[in-house]
Amino acid sequence: MSESPDESSKWEITLTVNGKRVTVQAYAMERLLDVVRNDLGLKGTKEGCGEGECGSCSVLMDGVLVNSCLIPVLQAKDSTIITIEGVQADGRAPVVQQAFLEYGGAQCGICTPGMILAACHLLQKKPQPTIEEIREGLSGNLCRCTGYLQIIEAVKEAARRGAAT
């Protein structure tokens, strides 16, 4: 590691992404979002605001929903990351995705990967959420298109179909 703050050097950082162990060369302060999109080529994770407000960059880190735009990649060292590309491995996701399709839960699609991950995270903790709990679970994910009602209906339907089992 270099002493001069003007030019820190890259680290070798290993993490497990969608079930595969990967090692990237990255600056410690690089955002997990950029590593996922640029180094790993997983473009399903979107950048909306870049400041924690919109949730379009959501991933699951060690099973927990986080905004990857606010995570320096060094803090993700040795962690397990699931992005939208890998979420199918989670049994809940296909049911949630199907419900989004049927209920008009996706329009332009920018918020959708984050919404799906937030919905899976919610259903894992609360298999039969109330409407209030769905609203809360998705409150960090903004959507400029749908007006949210279709999304909430989709999550409710996914829960009804037993997405959590």
Partner: peptide, 12 residues
């Protein structure tokens, strides 16, 4: 926007 090369981060 900040460039990550200009920052150091350590995790002892």
């Amino acid at each position: 926007r900040a460039h990550p090369a200009n920052y150091e981060l350590v995790a002892p």
